[in-house]
Design a protein around this nucleic acid. Structure first.
Length: 563
RNA sequence: GACUAGUUAGCUCAGUUGGCAGAGCAUCUCCCUUUUAAGGAGAGGGUCCUGGGUUCGAGCCCCAGACUGGUCACCA
């Protein structure tokens, strides 16, 4: 492990602290009684406070210094005065411990009294402080001036995602996104609980992955000696609970899909699904718009939100458009009563890529996706989807080609999907079988499964039920104006970092020669190694930087010596 | 998967025609008792993403690869 100069310096300081009998990682509780925010909100001149946090600014001015402590709520300025901290003759706590051995990023605990500086900043006059935890790695140090300009911002996405801990420490706006994320979950949970619905948990490891068309992750259970799939959706389990007699159940579910990754897809993501008995999709639309209005206010204090160039308003009610009307509106083509071939030809005429594996529903979905979807900026319910692409949804009460389904579109993206749930077990079995045929028709190797246990549950009888799923990650992207899902996940999936090798093969070879013959003439060693010029240069520089060898120059020439 | 941009000090970034590796902040040393990204003086700090090639000489040119971002496609 190669350490930078600054890391080495901090390790030396660690040793010095121990030599002074100061434990850099003490175990004892520190009796914090204020946060930085409480200090500012409840300011009283001369008030005694005890706070703790990271030292994030250290400006030494001789016998007194200013610093800044960052805790979970923000930052507060602190004032280190030598004679306050060291009232006696021994000034070492200020001169040594504070000035020389404390670094930015260290956790310290502080006891002091509040005052306001001449420039009007609330500050803690430190009476005593204690090192609580030493930081061995320097944090990035973004700075902001009084005009709001930032300097040295820690902004490389790769590093921010890989080292989210550092990102959170130095970028308060990043932390704010995750605070809002949790507010969203709490608001939604409260809304459901107030409505009398019941939060449940269902299996993540499933013998049959159901409830969506997606490629699952497969794992293996050793004792049972069977494959298990990580869930792609929780729909079929929640409906089993409606069969079991709950009026309303919901779950925030981590789902896993073994598919591509991009700025809107992470292999694991969070969906919320809710099922309410004796309701239909019309009721669910009302419920959905009330819910989102409530959530937007809980998160941002307003129903309005900015997303990129768009201003969106989550205030209910939202426009409702059937899919057929939407396609008619944006293309002039009326899909009602048309055959599969007519629709395929129309799609081709619109220059939409289609192939023979696509059924009628898929073709309609392609046309909608290509020509309509992107136009819905304000929250809009698209209703009445073709039957073929909705195998878990009840047939439309007025048109057997359609289903009672809606999706909520915002900024051209789907954020909610809901049905009047199919509860006819015979129809459901036929739809599953039809899906199986579609999967066989397409060359996609993703196998479809028929969940016979789910059908058995339906055969016991499920009350009329409406269900809805909401993509939580996408919703929070809209509410925090982030274009990338990685920005709203603490730890987005990343390719593994490349491991640093201790010593390359070439370095080992040269080191072996050196071990039996040191010091040795540099050119002699080079020819013995048999390396190319460039490779030799890299190798010898590698060895010297690792401090296992050094190059000596004297009157007789250049020599390499083992250290 | 395709296209495209990037990878240089702890952080943010320069780097000219191929000729000693640069700046600001951070770090280290010294001075400074109410400062506001920013006091003064001095010093140290580099696997220029990796591997190969061209060349007397490569951060720079050529080839291959890695990782990341963006756009598109695929996938919900």
């Amino acid at each position: 492990m190669q350490l930078s100069e600054q890391e080495l310096v901090r390790r030396e300081k660690l040793a010095k602290l121990r030599a002074l009998d100061i434990n850099p990682y003490p175990a004892d509780l520190f009796p914090v009684n204020h946060t930085s925010k409480q200090v500012k909100d409840k300011y009283e001149d001369g008030k005694k406070v005890i706070i703790a946090g990271r030292l994030m600014r250290k400006k030494i001015q001789g016998k007194a210094s200013f610093g800044e402590i960052q805790d979970s709520e923000g930052r507060i300025q602190v004032y280190f005065n030598r004679d306050e901290i060291c009232p006696g003759d021994d000034k070492s706590k200020y001169n040594e411990l504070f000035k020389k051995l404390l670094d930015l990023g260290d956790f310290i605990g502080i006891e002091g009294e509040l005052f306001t500086t001449q420039v009007g900043e609330i500050t803690i006059n430190i009476k005593d402080f204690k090192l609580l935890s030493k930081a061995l790695k320097p944090l990035p140090l973004p700075k902001t001036d009084s005009d709001g300009n930032t300097y040295d911002e820690f902004n490389d996405p790769e590093m921010r995602y890989r080292q989210r801990y550092a990102d959170l420490v130095v970028n308060p706006h990043v932390k704010e996104v995750f605070v809002k994320r949790t507010k969203l979950f709490n608001a939604m949970r409260n809304f459901f609980n107030d409505a009398g619905y019941f939060e449940v948990e269902t299996p993540i490891l499933q013998p049959i992955p159901g409830g969506a068309a997606a490629r699952p992750f497969i794992t293996h259970h050793n004792s049972l000696d069977i494959p298990l799939y990580m869930r792609i959706a929780n729909e079929l389990y929640l409906k089993r609970l409606i069969v079991g007699g709950f009026d309303g159940v919901y779950e925030f579910s981590k789902n896993f899909r073994n598919e591509g990754m991009d700025r809107t897809h992470n292999p694991e993501f969070t969906a919320m699904e809710i099922y309410v008995s004796y309701k239909d999709y019309n009721w669910m639309m009302d419920f959905c718009e009330q819910l989102l209005e409530h959530c937007a206010i809980a998160v941002n204090g307003t129903t309005e939100a900015t997303f990129g160039e768009h201003n969106i308003n989550f205030k209910a009610p939202y426009a409702r458009v059937t899919m057929a009307d939407s396609i008619k509106h944006f293309t002039g083509f009326d899909i009602t009563g048309k055959t599969e071939d007519e629709i395929r030809q129309t799609a081709k005429d619109m220059n939409i890529e289609v192939d023979e594996t696509m059924g009628k529903g898929k073709l309609i979905d392609e046309i909608f996706g290509e020509k309509c979807e992107g136009n819905y900026i304000q929250p809009t319910f698209i209703t009445d989807y073709p039957k073929e692409m909705s195998p878990l949804c009840k047939e439309h009460r007025e048109n057997p080609e359609l289903t009672e389904r809606f999706e909520l579109m915002v900024c051209g993206k789907e954020i909610a999907n809901a049905y009047s749930e199919l509860n006819d077990p015979i129809d459901q079995r036929e739809r599953f079988e039809h899906q199986l045929k579609l999967a066989e028709k397409g060359d996609d190797e993703a196998t479809e499964f028929i969940d016979h246990d789910f059908l058995r549950a339906l055969e016991y009888g499920m009350p009329p039920t409406s269900g809805m799923g909401i993509g939580m990650d996408r919703l929070i992207m809209f509410l925090t104006n982030n274009q990338s899902i990685q920005e709203v996940l603490f730890f987005p999936q990343m390719r593994p970092e490349r491991k640093q090798v201790e010593m390359t093969e070439e370095e080992k070879t040269v080191f072996e020669i050196l071990k039996s013959n040191s010091p040795i003439d540099l050119n002699n060693l080079k020819s013995q190694s048999g390396l190319s010029n460039k490779k030799w240069d890299k190798t010898i520089k590698g060895l010297t930087s690792k401090k296992v060898a050094k190059v000596l120059k004297n009157d007789d020439g250049l020599f390499v010596e083992i250290i």
